[in-house]
Design a protein around this nucleic acid. Structure first.
Length: 572
RNA sequence: GCCCCCGUAGCUCAGUGGAUAGAGCGACCGCCUCCUAAGCGGUAGGUCGCAGGUUCAACUCCUGCCGGGGGCACCA
């Protein structure tokens, strides 16, 4: 709808008398949704933009533009308001056209093919297999999955990828921790070293290892524990597999699926790390100093150069990171988006610098980062510290068990990624309106209920009758709801462009609010056949958009609300 | 010390350079003979951290301060 208005304005500008606007002025036509319904549906500030270069009064200029706007059946009224805005009011035909689109497109309403042919890889969670997923990973999972879904809605072929840091110091510590537990040591014992993992799950893994149990991650061979307590390699393989399996279970419960899993260790075994190092040396952006190999990241905007190969011969972490991102590019992803915690901020400049140094055609801003802030977990008015090493932290599994998957997913995407998130366990545990997800789901269930009632009364929903009588929808509540519904495709476009799923969560909250207000103010199942079907069309379209939006966030759209209280009462 | 993010109602947060800065929660007052009250309506609550600058127009962009968080290792 927006583009149709833009075309009208552009056509008007094109046929303005040449003496009005200097020929060298080429303004970008910006058409925006109005904030206030009294201002119509769309507005443009073009006259305000042009007033100065044209040396004209903005309102007079606006009038000149309006005079040139071609007639359109979509627009009933065009008016000049305020300092020189041009406001467009849509006709019932325009509304009807868009409502029909919602019915015709169904679950695909809001989708477009803008991103066709531009493959995107979204990397998220990427937790080290050293413990269960914590709430920070939950935020990443909710964010990353929603982002991927948004990109898909805009036509981008998307791959969801999980990168396993299964090489390095942490994994060694994991193996040592399990070995120590298997030998009967505990955190706090003199033998227990700093940096080892203290969580109880380490004891569980140690027990399973000694019991020679078999585990397998979804993508690997089953591994049977040898039970040999001195075989650190065997312990490491077993422990990593155990934890990968556990993380898989958590993600499955969270409703998040990945298309690809990439193992850091494979970068070494495939020789990709070495190849990358050789290419970087060949590029001339490296030098030896203090017995170490350095990369001149300052050539690419970093504030100081970075060590690639330490004096002990091992690589620093960012070398495999660069090698990994080279594979993303080589695998055909013209865009890469990494969802990570803000603690990864320092790595951005280095990875990008490394990719630029290779000079193999990777764009400058590759990859994109969506960094999220910490999730602070509150319980009983006190903060629960999140720390893998301390072993005491709230896991994704805990949250799902306490408040349900839908609430956790909706909660975690409902805020901007770069704002700190306070997850109050007590609040989330409380039943009722505190969880906005209920509010949105209830709106969906209410529409479903209306149609159940309709059926019980022996009536049917006649879409055609509703469509021919769309002009009967004249109530302010109806107009507001229609405005909101028809904004959905633009909302998805904006949320995707900005990589901000929270825009969708907010939109759904507002759409549900418009519906609940309407529901309370008017009845839908009425005797007047024409008005009844017009209203049923409107609420059916509302249900469709609610379903579509919730789906993108990974939240269910129930046809009935199951009372938690009743369920609890039933258990007692 | 340097870099990034944040600062908007009592609390949690929205707010693509535009028109009278908005929700939810909490508080207070109302609404079930009526398609689910998990809902709706209303009232109260603001020097948009401070000070400059750019602009026809600044919560929004720029600079500097103040306050909060995170990052700055031959750690990953």
């Amino acid at each position: 709808m927006k583009y149709q208005i833009e075309r009208l304005v552009q056509a008007a500008l094109a046929c303005l008398p040449p003496d009005i606007v200097p020929a060298d002025v080429h303004p970008t036509v910006e058409v925006e949704r109005t904030r206030d319904a009294a201002h119509g549906d769309f507005a443009t500030n073009i006259a305000l933009q042009l007033a100065k270069p044209a040396r004209k009064n903005p309102r007079q200029l606006a009038q000149a533009i309006v005079d040139c706007i071609p007639a359109s059946e979509l627009v009933t009224k065009i008016e000049i308001a305020g300092p020189g805005f041009i406001n467009f009011h849509f006709s019932p035909q325009a509304y009807q056209q868009e409502l029909s689109r919602i019915f015709d497109l169904g679950v695909a309403y809001g989708y477009n093919k803008r991103g066709a042919g531009q493959s995107v890889v979204v990397e998220f969670v990427s937790a080290n297999p050293t413990g269960p997923l914590h709430v920070g990973h939950g935020r990443q999972a909710a964010l990353g999955d929603a982002l991927a879904a948004l990109l898909q809605s805009q036509g981008y072929p998307v791959s969801r990828e999980f990168y396993y840091n299964d090489a390095g110091v942490q994994i060694q510590n994991l193996a040592l921790s399990v070995q120590a537990r298997a030998r009967g040591y505990k955190p706090g014992d003199p033998e227990w070293q700093e940096g080892w993992y203290a969580g109880e799950y380490i004891q569980d893994i140690a027990n399973d290892f000694l019991a020679r149990k078999t585990v397998h991650a979804f993508d690997g061979e089953p591994i049977r524990a040898s039970g040999k307590i001195d075989d650190l390699d065997a312990i490491r393989r077993f422990a990593v597999t155990c934890l990968r399996h556990e993380q898989d279970m958590d993600l499955q419960k969270f409703g998040v699926r990945f298309d690809t899993y990439y193992l850091e260790s494979s970068l070494y075994s495939d020789g990709k790390v070495d190849t990358t190092v050789q290419s970087l040396i060949a590029s001339g952006h490296t030098y030896e100093k203090d017995n170490a190999l350095w990369l001149k990241t300052t050539d690419f905007g970093d504030d100081k150069d970075r060590v690639m190969r330490k004096s002990d011969g091992t690589y620093t972490y960012f070398v495999p990171d660069v090698a990994y991102h080279v594979t993303k590019w080589q695998r055909g992803f013209c865009r890469a988006i990494n969802v990570q915690g803000t603690d990864h901020h320092g790595t951005i400049a280095r990875v990008r610098a490394g990719l630029q140094a290779l000079n193999i055609g990777i764009p400058k801003g590759y990859p994109d980062y969506v960094l999220h802030k910490m999730v602070k977990v509150m319980r009983g008015g006190e903060e629960v510290k999140i720390s893998k090493r301390a072993g005491s932290y709230v896991t994704v599994r805990d949250l799902i068990d306490w408040v349900g998957r839908d609430a956790v997913r909706f909660f975690l995407v409902s805020r901007k990624a770069d704002s700190e998130f306070v997850f109050d366990i007590d609040l989330a545990l409380a039943e009722g309106e505190e969880n906005p997800v209920y509010y949105v789901q209830y709106a969906h269930a209410r529409v479903c209920s209306v149609f159940r009632q309709l059926q019980e009364k022996g009536l049917t929903h006649e879409r055609d009758i509703g469509e021919t009588n769309v002009d009967l929808l004249t109530e302010p509540h109806e107009k507001a709801l229609i405005r909101r519904l028809t904004y959905y495709p633009e909302l998805l476009e904006n949320a995707t462009h900005d990589l901000e799923p929270h825009q969708l969560a907010h939109y759904l909250r507002e759409l549900a609010g418009d519906f609940h207000t309407y529901y309370n103010a008017h009845k839908f199942i009425i005797d007047d056949v024409k008005l009844r079907n017009a209203r049923l069309n409107l609420v059916a379209a509302t249900r469709q958009v609610l379903e579509n939006g919730l789906k993108l966030l990974g939240v269910s759209a129930p046809e009935k609300m199951e009372s938690k209280k009743a369920a609890t009462a039933g258990e007692q």
